[in-house]
């Protein structure tokens, strides 16, 4: 986790240069290697790289364009052609509302699942049975770019939950606080196999009222959470939301009746998506 006070100005705009520096600092600390080399190691010029952003809440609480651009710049420097970089989310409309420009011509691609379509095949794992985004299927690698926010039904939305935007039927998976559905969706082979890095946009986070943007419940965390273990990232993010809720006098997510147990399920022996024991998670703060 890298935190830089001042990366967001009084109007809520992100400083692109500071943000890029934060990204480099985070990946260098995570991999203990020089940033350019890391990106070249993780991604080859032959890769088709999907950037799974989260734009449901529109401007104010979506993956910031400045962060997505910083990732695109680093992929470009690693030799990935622009046409092989795809910014993607559920719907064209969501992307546009968050400020992204749709593109299926030359340059970096940007489209929603509603335009790209879904597989004919139904992929299954546990309780999940879904058709998958054709954008996901086209990609050889995925960078997960979620945001950090409260979720009124499943507790919180971070790294794992972001892949509800890769399936055709996320509406079927909100029962029982999303447990085990979120974990099951992340075990669908094309998702599990392709996600190489998660960069959570926590410049502005929301501790209540999500998933829509409710500015009265946001706080300036001015942080990026970077991980290769999505379950560990979410476990830490859950703690951060609970801590903020305690600070403002709200009950924890558990006491509010929406404990995100799907995160714990993601770490169980049936899913093995990552480490969810806070004691065992190597949480590095810079």
């Amino acid at each position: 986790m890298v935190q830089r006070p001042g990366v967001v100005d009084a109007q809520g705009r992100a400083d692109a240069v500071k943000l890029s520096n934060m990204l480099d600092a985070a990946v260098e600390r995570l991999f203990e290697e020089e940033a350019d080399k890391i990106w070249r190691t993780l991604f080859s010029p032959r890769d088709v790289v999907g950037l799974k952003v989260n734009c449901l809440a529109g401007r104010g609480l979506s993956t910031r364009i400045e962060l997505t651009q910083a990732v695109v710049d680093r992929l470009t420097k690693a030799g990935v052609p622009h046409e092989q970089i795809i910014i993607w989310d559920r719907r064209d409309r969501d992307l546009q509302r968050a400020g992204y420009t749709l593109n299926s011509g030359k340059g970096v691609q940007c489209c929603g699942n509603d335009r790209a379509g879904f597989t004919e095949q139904v992929y299954e794992f546990g309780a999940a049975a879904s058709q998958l985004s054709l954008t996901l299927m086209r990609c050889t690698a995925v960078i997960n770019l979620p945001i950090l926010k409260d979720h009124g039904i499943v507790g919180m939305s971070g790294a794992l939950k972001n892949f509800f935007g890769a399936v055709n039927n996320p509406n079927k998976y909100h029962m029982n606080c999303g447990d085990p559905f979120v974990a099951d969706v992340n075990c669908l082979p094309p998702i599990r196999r392709k996600v190489r890095l998660t960069i959570c946009d926590a410049l502005t986070a929301q501790y209540e009222g999500g998933p829509p943007f409710m500015p009265e419940y946001t706080w300036r965390l001015e942080s990026l959470l970077v991980a290769i273990d999505m379950a560990a990232l979410d476990r830490i993010a859950w703690q951060m939301i609970d801590e903020k809720r305690r600070q403002v006098g709200l009950p924890t997510l558990e006491k509010a009746g929406r404990k995100p147990t799907y995160i714990l399920t993601a770490g169980d022996s049936a899913h093995r998506l990552g480490e969810t024991d806070p004691i065992k998670i190597d949480w590095i703060r810079i």
Binding site: L56, A57, H151, G152, I153, N169, N171, K172, H174, M175, G210, P211, P212
Partner: peptide, 12 residues
């Protein structure tokens, strides 16, 4: 279903 803003019910 209790449904947040911009979300859909189970029926989709």
């Amino acid at each position: 279903c209790v449904i947040d803003d911009m979300e859909r019910g189970y029926c989709g």
